[in-house]
Design a protein around this nucleic acid. Structure first.
Ligand code: MN
Ligand code: MN
Ligand code: ZN
Ligand code: ZN
Lengths: 147, 147
DNA sequence: TTCCTATATAAGAACTATTCTTATTTGGAG
DNA sequence: CTCCAAATAAGAATAGTTCTTATATAGGAA
């Protein structure tokens, strides 16, 4: 699982600056660091992982700030919560339309892209107004299968 | 959201009896009541909801038994955990292949069926061995939109 | 620049969902 | 009926997340 290209990371940080300006939110060091942490990796980290990594550079950062900031970033549309099999919320700064393969053994979440995006199914109208569609494939990743 | 047909409920309970016999698990009153609760409704209840409802008829039932039983039922393939947007695990005794519409405001989960089931995408092979595919559509249900 | 204040943060308590521990009960085989 | 491995009740423990309160600070105004 290779890292996000530096130019892509820089672009994502630029979106954060814009989003803060547009919504009137302050551009705090904590927001920068927390978003940077999500933006630079593509392994869909959970809040605790982000907390530990940010704390290495910012030893006083609190759990609350991480959770609160992730919620703000989600509201601003800069990250999305990924549904997992169990418990913890996981976050993704990849804004491209894509889907997820979830390993039910180790929890690893990998992106995949469909050649043709599925359209919202017809019957949905009678249930509500659809806003997004996500395909989730579950199974065992190669790493787990070989152990 | 209408109830599950009594004949369907009876059939599901029959599967439970068979599954217990096959796997050597005991057919306890608690298992009956807990599974019955999930089998008779299609609103994908969470563990606490099931606990409260079962407790009305069985006042001494414990949280632990509900959680433990739901896990057993999942292992037996009689219920499945539904991924939600936030926190609590939700359970589903509808064994037909189907997908979910999740209201991001009230959390209601509704079933929908696709005319043609999507096949496992090609690129998945390089990520792992796929075992299931689920489409999740998120949006606002009619009930929430009108309030 | 300095001052002001609404917004954001740190620290840790509180809360909520879930799992664990231990003593007791019970389904179902024999 | 008897027996005992499996299951349960009760409540403590744990883990993830949110809340409370005192303090700090981003960023606009003077
Ligand atoms: Mn992703
Ligand atoms: Mn369902
Ligand atoms: Zn894995
Ligand atoms: Zn709703």
């Amino acid at each position: 699982m290779k890292a996000v290209a530096p130019s892509e990371v820089e672009q994502r940080l630029e979106y954060l600056r814009l989003a803060c300006r547009n919504t009137g939110m302050r551009m705090t060091h904590q927001r920068m660091e927390i978003f940077h942490e999500v933006a630079q990796c593509n392994e869909h980290p959970d809040a605790e992982t982000i907390f530990k990594r940010v704390r290495e550079r910012m030893p006083t950062v609190s759990h609350d700030t991480v959770y609160r900031t992730l919620a703000s970033l989600e509201e601003m549309g800069l990250v999305r919560r990924v549904e997992t099999v169990a418990g913890r919320a996981r976050y993704d700064a990849n804004g491209d339309t894509h889907h997820h393969f979830v390993c039910t053994r180790c929890g690893q979440i990998s992106d995949f892209y469909l050649e043709q995006e599925p359209s919202i199914p017809k019957g949905i109208e009678e249930l509500g107004r659809a806003e997004s569609l996500q395909v989730q494939v579950r199974g065992i990743c190669h790493n787990c299968k070989n152990n």
